[in-house]
Design a protein around this nucleic acid. Sequence first.
DNA 1: GTCTATATACGGATAGAC
DNA 2: GTCTATCCGTATATAGAC
Lengths: 210, 210
Amino acid sequence: MNQPTGQEDKVLSTEEKIKEAARKLFTQKGFAAVRTRDIADEAGINLALLNYYFRSKQKLFDIIMLENFRKFLHIVSGRVLDDSLTLEEKIALLVDIEIDMLTQNPDLPLFVLNEIRVNPNKIAMEMHSGDVPGVSRLLAQLISANGSGEAPQMQPLHFLANLIGLTVFPFVGRPMLQKITGVDEDAFYKMMQERKKLIPIWIKAILNCS
Amino acid sequence: MNQPTGQEDKVLSTEEKIKEAARKLFTQKGFAAVRTRDIADEAGINLALLNYYFRSKQKLFDIIMLENFRKFLHIVSGRVLDDSLTLEEKIALLVDIEIDMLTQNPDLPLFVLNEIRVNPNKIAMEMHSGDVPGVSRLLAQLISANGSGEAPQMQPLHFLANLIGLTVFPFVGRPMLQKITGVDEDAFYKMMQERKKLIPIWIKAILNCS
DNA sequence: GTCTATATACGGATAGAC
DNA sequence: GTCTATCCGTATATAGAC
């Protein structure tokens, strides 16, 4: 979880322990299905401390939700913002970063997609203020590519649905896909690594065929 | 909802009213976030009747969950089982049926995928007994196609992830996709209709490019 | 079958000692 | 900062009249 730091994560403060436990449980089960007692147990702390550090269950959840949401959307930030890259290079980079992120946070997309549907209001603001950093530029680049002869018309919605669907969906549907195909967890994650190279190729093929 | 029946759905029995209300709310919000009072209000019946007809909230939920799960998986049944169809024909038919089903039940996939993750045990049985009717045959057909020269190797897991991802994901991510692209609900569902023709073409392109 | 009233349990939150 | 004990609202479920 905290790989970049040199020290291993056993020296968390009480507040951090609560937050990490809350993140784990809320992300897996959602707000209503988690009891504050579960969080306290998971964190190995006393129940009263939860309210001491974070006034209420709701406040704690809001913090986790915002952080999860940012992490999910800000995949496309920093490096991918550089406009020197071609559309194809951006796609390859984006898929690479996103699959790494999803491998480390496999429960994130289901949580976020659920919250967006249940709670469109809280989310809308974040969606516009952050503006999903690189995505608008990516779509602009797609549209200008539409103009040139190389690849014909492709609606931004279809393009995004394809790109995110191919990249994110396997993680959302992992238990189902494993059950149907009989692939174990190790093999599954190895195949997700393969997809880093495959998806950009597939996306290109899709763009060239309408 | 009950389109095949000639009569319109205002003449539901009390039991059916409760079940329909429960289906709607549970599918949207999940078990923990729904109160029995919400279901009673939505159904327009007295709270005590819920326990009279379905012993408990949990029992009622189990019924809904099982039905939702079957509906989601049995997309691939009946017509698609016919083995006279080629792989390409099956894909086109499957995508067509699935998009129609998802258009009428847009909350279904998120509910089912959530439940599978939270509750893998209850689900496993259903997954084997039903064996996701047409899918195993579809995959067998894919593998035999791998053998012939036409299309090279494609792992079943990649194939399924692509097919389901392209078809199902847009519905799971609809609110997000609409927000990012600015497409309204009407236009969104029209584009889903377009995808009935596009996805089979894209899948073919993907199969031909590795 | 349907209602009102109520028992009972559970979960979020706090008071107050240490 | 951390603990124990407890309060209190809320939600499920049932008893019993009609």
